[in-house]
């Protein structure tokens, strides 16, 4: 394990096969009633098969937008993408609608934040899983029903056969999210996108779902991009962490480095504002101010207006990514010194 890990990180990695996911200079913007909203402003990353990348950020940081862009899920008429997304050799941004339909749900699939809203309320859980299996694997309805039952058993839903015939409103929140996971994994995707899948759940159920996800991810060897605003969740599941702010990755690196040896003042603020790092009886720190308006971003570093270390040069030019270590990087001029 250690040897494999070291080989991953060594400079000889060029010889290894191409990563599953390559994203280069991705931007996503929406045409709205009041101008263009630039939600994602140049995101680059790669993700190997079987690895978990967690995108961490506040609401409005562009993390969910980035995630949904991975399968071009934004309304086509209002959204424009630039840059490049490649998943398993497929150029997502230039696929036709038909090709996209074949990729969605089979190569890449998604778990949503609120399973109650993500299931069609007038179809049973079984129908909704079987429908996906029929769509992508071209099997008979009976075979798909059988597969749906296996999937529900795989995500440890009790009395699975009965739950197959249940409607979403007849299940509990945790059970619905398990069913959502079963649906997402139904066609053995290479890449799973998880959009705050535990946020809507009770704390105890949250942990169970996380553990289940982690276990299934290891068994099936798939890559996961996991979006959350919760440091604790990120620490639990991630291999790599990317901290997102105003549509950019402002710090990326292995989970231990980002949490233990954080470089960016924003990451520092996020950590200080979670219960995990704080002491009993102490007030939690907050990051002063609010995230910037994505319709008119400030020049220079987008975090400058809220940063306690801000210097005049922060507002002058766009801050590049600095690499103090090969795999740990951040967009902050203080690293340059």
């Amino acid at each position: 394990m250690t040897a494999a890990l070291r080989q991953d990180q060594s400079p000889v990695a060029e010889a290894a096969p191409a990563p599953l996911v390559t994203v280069e200079n991705l931007t996503v913007s929406f045409k709205g009633g009041d101008g263009v909203i630039k939600a994602v402003n140049g995101v680059d990353f790669t993700l190997e098969r079987g690895k978990v990348l967690t995108i961490l950020g506040e609401s409005g940081s562009g993390k969910s937008v980035t995630l949904k862009a991975m399968m071009r899920l934004h309304p086509p008429r209002k959204t424009s993408y630039t840059g490049r997304i490649a998943i398993g050799g497929r150029e997502i941004l230039s696929l036709s609608d038909r090709e996209l339909g074949q990729v969605r749900g089979s190569v890449v699939s998604m778990i949503f934040q609120e399973p109650m809203l993500a299931f069609d309320p007038v179809y049973t859980i079984g129908q909704q899983i079987a429908e996906t299996v029929v769509r992508h694997e071209g099997v008979s309805r009976q075979a798909a029903d059988k597969r749906a039952l296996e999937l529900l058993e795989m995500v440890q839903i009790p009395s699975a056969a009965r739950r197959l015939k249940a409607y979403p409103h007849e299940m509990s929140g945790g059970m619905r999210q398990r069913a959502m996971i079963a649906l997402a994994l139904s066609c053995r995707p290479d890449l799973l996108l998880a959009d705050e899948p535990t946020t809507a759940l009770d704390a105890t159920v949250q942990m169970q779902v996380l553990i289940l996800l982690r276990q299934l991810q290891r068994e099936m060897g798939m890559a996961v991009i996991f979006v959350t605003h919760d440091m604790g969740v990120a620490a639990e599941i991630a291999d790599e962490v990317a901290v997102m702010y105003a549509g950019r990755f402002i710090e990326t690196g292995p989970v231990g480095d980002v949490i233990g040896r954080r470089l960016h003042p924003y990451t520092e603020g996020l950590l200080a504002s979670t219960v995990h790092g704080a002491q009993r009886g102490q007030r939690l720190e907050t990051i002063a101010g609010a995230p910037p308006n994505l319709a008119k971003l400030p020049s220079g570093c987008a975090f400058a207006p809220r940063c306690r270390y801000v210097e005049p040069r922060c507002r002058e030019t766009e801050v590049p990514l600095f690499h103090p270590k090969p795999d740990h990087a951040a967009r902050c001029l203080r690293i340059d010194r």
Binding site: K68, M71, L73, D97, L100, G101, Q102, V103, R104, G105, S106, S109, M110, F112, E114, L117, A118, F119, D120, P121, V122, Y123, E131, T132, R135, H136, L183
Partner: peptide
Amino acid sequence: NQEFVQALRAKGLSERHVLGHVIRN
């Protein structure tokens, strides 16, 4: 406008199938 329609598209269903779901709803 409901999220499940996006979820249906995320499953890779064709627009025809998505409309079937909409009609049932």
